[in-house]
Design a protein around this nucleic acid. Sequence first.
DNA 1: GCTGGGCTCTTACCC
DNA 2: ACGGGTAAGAGCCCAGCG
Length: 775
Amino acid sequence: MKTSLWLLDINGEFIQGNPEIRLWGLDGEGRRILVRDSRLLPYFYLVLNGTRESEDIANEIEKTHLPSLEKVDVVNRRYFGKQVKALKITVRDPSLIEGYVKKLAKVHGVETHLEDDLRYSYRYLVDNGVSPCHWHEVDVEEVRNDLKASVEAVYRAESTPKLGEKADSPSMRVLSLSMMAHSPTGAPKPDNNPVDIISCATNSGETKQFATGNKDDEPTLEAFIKYLRDFDPDIIATFGGNTFEWPFLLERAKRSGLKLQVDRLDTEPHRSAYGHISITGRANVDFSDFSDEIGEVKVKSLENIAAFLGLPEATAPIIEDVDYADYWNDPKRRPELLEFSMRRARLILGLADELLGFAEELSSLSGLPLDQVGAAAVGFRIESYIIRQALNYGELIPQRLERPYFPYQGGIVLNPKPGLHEDVAVLDFKAMYPNLMITYNISCDTYIAPKEPTPPEGVNAAPEVGHRFRKEPPGLYSRVLKELIQTRDRVRVEMKGLKPGDSAYRIRDARQRAIKVMTNAAYGYAGWVGARWYIRPVAEAAAAWGRYTITRAIETARKMGLDIIYGDTDSVFVKYDRGKTDRFVREVEAEMGLEIRPDKVYRRVLFTEAKKRYAGLLEDGSLDIVGLEVARGDWTELAKDVQEGVLGILLRDKDPEKAAAYVREEVSTLRAGKVPLRDLTIWKTLTKDPKEYAVRVAHVEAAKRLAEKGWEVTTGDKVGYVIAKGEGKLYQRAVPYAFASPEEVDLKYYEEQQILPSALRVLSMFKITEKQLQP
DNA sequence: GCTGGGCTCTTACCC
DNA sequence: ACGGGTAAGAGCCCAGCG
């Protein structure tokens, strides 16, 4: 028989001497199914150096009679675009590969070993072109559910699952989860502190809460496990669950002698690829992993992200984690905490509703399973996409190597013309680096090293740096990028016929955004020393062609008499003249073979002398503020609000005096103590362990003060602090936001080091001085 | 012992 | 754990100082 399968989760096992892939998903009838496939044996390659006959080496290896060795095949492949002979070594037990590689790589005539570092389950996806979050057709035979898997049917695969047409996801059960615990001495630790509250919300509209009555959380955990298994979610949504909820719950369960059996088999959640927590048969998605995609939100808390997405309840009052214990221990206030926890579960569910589509698209495009794709860094997502394409071209997958890092020259940034300009158009090259890579065939497998002869088909040589790339055939990057760009264009055309807000539109929008993310990542990937296909000249050449392109565009504009105000990497800001601009666009496109388009037109735009910082008034009357304090997360809300107010007055009214008066008002408000603590808080990221800093800085000192009280902050966390009155350096006066009180705040600091600099940054252009900003 | 200029460290932005 | 280019604040160092 045949079944359709929408792939939700995959895992590889080795049982009774055989490797087995388990594909978990849904079928066309919406049933949960498990497809077991033992038809693919794991393998790796030995690349040969040509000093011996391939068959001789193959024979030698076969004669070793390694117990799990199945087969040795001589094959032709490509490696960085060059033809190579390789041996494909097929092995039955994936866990033995590592040992075999060590042994066989030493055989005379073997240059290197490849693809032994791919997980078996990932190998299966890549080899068969099977995609997570995608429909497949597969020939199957129904078998007994002897694994006791929580599914409606178990099958044995009798064919390779065949990728079906791109179609809507099946309707799935989503459960969100938020947990709370407390300690009298700081952050809760699972070895000492019980779980207080577990809140769940489901996309069927249910909410459910489990709270611990006394100190014994065993009944809480038991009830939660039972509830989760009964609901049987396909997707488990958390916000930070990979680092907080799951490790905590696992430890608590262990202490009670309970099994945290929340999967579709009989195992427990476990840490797996990219550090995510895997729950067999389901997709455990930690939505905090997607908060990087939302650049507008600087402090990436659940509430802030939910508020940005416009979710109901997102702006209701927050209970800070330092206050949990007080709420929990006070019978009058405990209900508030319970409600707060429940609200978090609802917000996570809302986040899942907003972001799951994007996550699914990213998963199906990259080929990384849904539970992994968020946890995987951008470089690994694009690499996964490239790996899948490489297979189609017979290109072997290089190892991941540790390499030294040497910087190279990047894009050009022009000095802006300072001042207020009327009618300025921003023209930018559409997807400049990807298109350069396509146009000049810049790729890891088309690069011709300096000592190599010029191939007959000819080369493109990069300006300035001289790196050469063969003109034919199209390289891996070229093909990958062409396909991505074409697919995105197609999706966007489809969107034109749909209503925004419709689910069909939303799905396609998520899809085109996922494709854009991947397309834009390709150039960065090429220059990343951690990339499997890293070749520095690839990135260096793309950057050089970028400089060449923008320089030529600037020359063209000058010749035409277009007044250039500014430019950065792939954009030029010109005094807007409809006729000249149209001609400029046509001319540049004809000359460079790259598309350049007016991105936006400013009615008025303000530059200081600094690059990468400006503010403009768009034609719809809105402000567009770039690079300035308003756009930064490490300035107080106060300073940002004042600067935004100033910019609004300058750009709309062209009245510096009025702006100065506005600043004086704001200073008075501050002096009167009317600015809330929240707006005086500075948030900065801890980029390394507090011990590793070479100098003493405020946010690190604040982090240490948090740690002293048991609130450990770790690398990657944002620390909020305020500056208190007193003597000494700023770092000596940094008080963690959570411990700060309004009375101790040093208002003078906020006036002199926050409001004044951010206001003067733009007002000094108009000869307004500090004195004029004093009330 | 203090001051101020300049360098360094650090963060977060732009494209 | 994707690239380089850039601004900016605060700490730190030390020459110069009757």
